[in-house]
Every structure is written in structure tokens, then in C-alpha cells.
Amino acid sequence: MTTRDIVFIALFAAIMAALAVFPPVMLPLLGVPITAQSMGPMLAGGVLGARRGGLAMVLFLALVAIGLPLLSGGRGGFGVFFGPTAGYLIGWIVAAVAIGWMTERVWHRLNYLTACAICVAGGIGLLYAVGVPWSAAVANVPLSAALIGSAPFLPGDVVKALIAAAVIVTVRRSYPLIPRSAATSR
């Protein structure tokens, strides 16, 4: 891990924090506000790769845990890890690592479609695979009920995955970071 890696990890943890104050987009049909923050794990994984992307999420959540109000809506502090939706926060780490890992695998032939597939699989599939059973377990509700409860966020998350994929592909063109890191860290 070079100084450059550490600086990038710190940067993406900070970008996560900035996404919390990004103007929320309203979904026209459902009226569910979608905040930009959950795009962070996709961007971190897709731009930095598995290792640095995952560590950026760990750093961000550590800063939240020590009491900085960096989650959207100004939430923060140790308490957020004990709420019913804490699984999604932990899921961000899993999602960033998975998206980073998949992006590294297809880096040389990454296009918008593969990036979309990666973001949907990691940022929605895996994220929900952690978050839904977690909230079912801590809230004592059956899995199906937790799944229904998370359904309103699905359309927004799909939109975010599509945007994140476009960002990843565009940034790759002007600022490719993954191959160089693969050469130095392995």
C-alpha cells in the first residue's frame, strides 16, 4: 500500500461524505427521495478497485462511528450501527469490494453494459443480500416482510447503479487507476 493508495482511500471516504449533501432526486412515480450517498460504494469500487474501494468504505464508516454526522440527513455516531437498517451500511463495504473485484476482472474490456451489470449485481444484489436478512434478524420480522420493506428503494437504486456505471466508464477513460494498482499491490 503506497502513500498514493492511502490518499485515494481518504479521498473516496470524503466523496462519500460529500454525496450526503448532493441534491436528492425525487422519483417521479413513487415520491421516494433518492439520496446520492449509496452511489459511493459503487464509485469507490469501480474507480479504485476492490482493496482501496473497500478500505475507503471502512474508513468512512469508522468516521461515522466516532461521531461525525456524515450519513445523509446528518446521521452519525455509534448508534447508527444498531438501527434496523445497519446491515446496509456494512453491506456498503461488501458491495465496494465486490464491484471493485469484478471491475478489475473485466478492466480491459469494460464498457457501459458490463459496468451496469457489475453495479447492479454488487450495489443492489449483494447490498440487499446483506441488508435484508440483517434487518429481518434484528427487527424480528420474516425475510419476506423485510424484502417488501426494502422494495420502494429498488427503483432509485437501479437509477443510481446506471448513473454510477456511466461515471465509472467515463472516469476510466480519463483517469484509469486500476491496472497500475494491480501491478504495484500484487
Partner: peptide, 29 residues
């Protein structure tokens, strides 16, 4: 969103790179 996010990431990555070089040049490493 793309017109905000892409410049944000590219511009701050550049700053981060400069910062990493500065840190290494001062041998904080």
C-alpha cells in the same frame, strides 16, 4: 448527475495525486 460527478471525481483525483506526491517528497512516508 454525470456532469457533476465525473468532473468532481477527476478533479479531486488529480488533487489527491498531487497531494500524494507532496507527502512523498517531504518523506512523511
Amino acid at each position: 448527475p454525470l456532469a457533476l460527478l465525473v468532473p468532481l471525481i477527476v478533479r479531486t483525483l488529480r488533487t489527491a495525486d498531487e497531494m500524494a506526491e507532496a507527502i512523498e517528497a517531504r518523506s512523511v512516508e
